[in-house]
Design a protein around this nucleic acid. Structure first.
Lengths: 208, 208
DNA sequence: AACATTATCACATGAATATGTGAATTGGCT
DNA sequence: AGCCAATTCACATATTCATGTGATAATGTT
């Protein structure tokens, strides 16, 4: 039989914290090593604790759970992080995943599903609450409707490949002046006034 | 009681196709309306069929399942698409999600999980096979190690906000010449030679 | 002590970009 | 027939950017 999964919990609410620990310790194949009420104390003895996975709240008294995951991943990249929070704000979800979280559960998740998610995260998955998963998948979706015309989109595509006016002109078989003309329209519509600003906006807003 | 979920299947292998249909039709609350062996015939009568959700293969004889989802979403954005394929290639997964798929299952998925995934997709989730979910979540992760120095990262950050040399100089309290100097190093390390190319590379490779 | 790296600044030149003003053509819509 | 949006092109000018060739100071390494 394989080793138990060793958990840490970082959560400022004492009741939630002890409930979680109880659920975990009464589940087969996993054990909650230690719990912390803030990110600072968790990060302190990280190397000694060396858990397999940590359940991390986002709202914490000192530094946030997101920053904590970031710092944790720097030091100990092999420890998995599973966010467990009330927040469903887009930015917090994406920031958590950028920081290195392997999963994201909302706090209304039933105990059974939390246990399942821990096993899932440990076996290379990325457990997410239903609403979170859809949010994440939706973020890939290209903007369907934009103010830009087809040709302007062609030009914007080329801009996002880092091409110069001359190269864009060659690629689209038009003159540089025409490229200029299209780019002027693009700037107006995107409310920018330089190539790099346009590229940044296009890539961030998934226009291309 | 609510209406049955109405499914379509697009899959070129006749055996897989009829197996899937059978599984669905013997499941509570869902019915497989029609099946198609290629994307073209599926798209043809889309408006008439108007299913709730379609199970879509990627490798198809004519146009691919990914293109099919894209076209379907243009015409009928409310129909859900669930990819069901052998492919686990990063690009195909991301292309599918960009095209508008709500979920992505590999073909080894057991029937029970497929049924569950259909219900999950219909109730606003994004069912994914374990390996796919991790792949998706990983794509958010920032590049941890890069050749760039701290200061160069500061400058790159500003570049990605679309700022000019002058504005970057103001923001970082250094001279424009120093900005130039840093940007030259950045270009060399990223192997680019213009602002927009640097921005494109930084955003695409998640350096910032 | 010698060396490499990083961060800072300076000056100069040619190339690329931003902005303004205009105009011809095409195709769709009323 | 008349209008409008989209696409194409032209010319002019000022700004910005890319590139080269330096220099100085601080830091860290061998």
């Amino acid at each position: 039989m394989s080793e138990n999964i060793r958990l840490n919990i970082v959560e400022d609410d004492p009741e939630i914290r002890s409930n979680l620990a109880l659920i975990i310790n009464t589940s087969e194949g996993m054990i909650c090593d230690r719990t912390f009420e803030n990110a600072e104390s968790f990060l302190e003895n990280l190397e000694l604790q060396n858990p397999d996975i940590v359940l991390m709240d986002i709202s914490l008294p000192g530094i946030t759970g997101i920053k904590a995951v970031e710092k944790m991943k720097e030091k100990m990249p092999n420890i998995e992080a599973l966010m467990l929070t009330v927040h469903q704000d887009d930015q917090l979800v994406f920031d958590s995943l950028c920081a290195g979280a392997s999963g994201y559960l909302v706090k209304s998740t039933p105990p059974q599903r939390i246990i399942e998610a821990i096993r899932e995260a440990m076996s290379g998955g990325a457990p997410m609450s239903t609403s979170i998963a859809r949010m994440v998948v939706k973020s890939f979706r290209k903007q369907t409707e934009s103010d830009l015309t087809e040709r302007e989109m062609d030009v914007l595509d080329q801009l996002c490949k880092g091409k110069s006016y001359k190269l864009i002109a060659d690629a689209l078989f038009i003159s540089q002046d025409t490229v200029r003309s299209h780019i002027k329209s693009i700037y107006k519509k995107l409310e920018v006034n330089s190539k790099s600003e346009a590229v940044a906006k296009a890539l961030k807003d998934r226009l291309v």
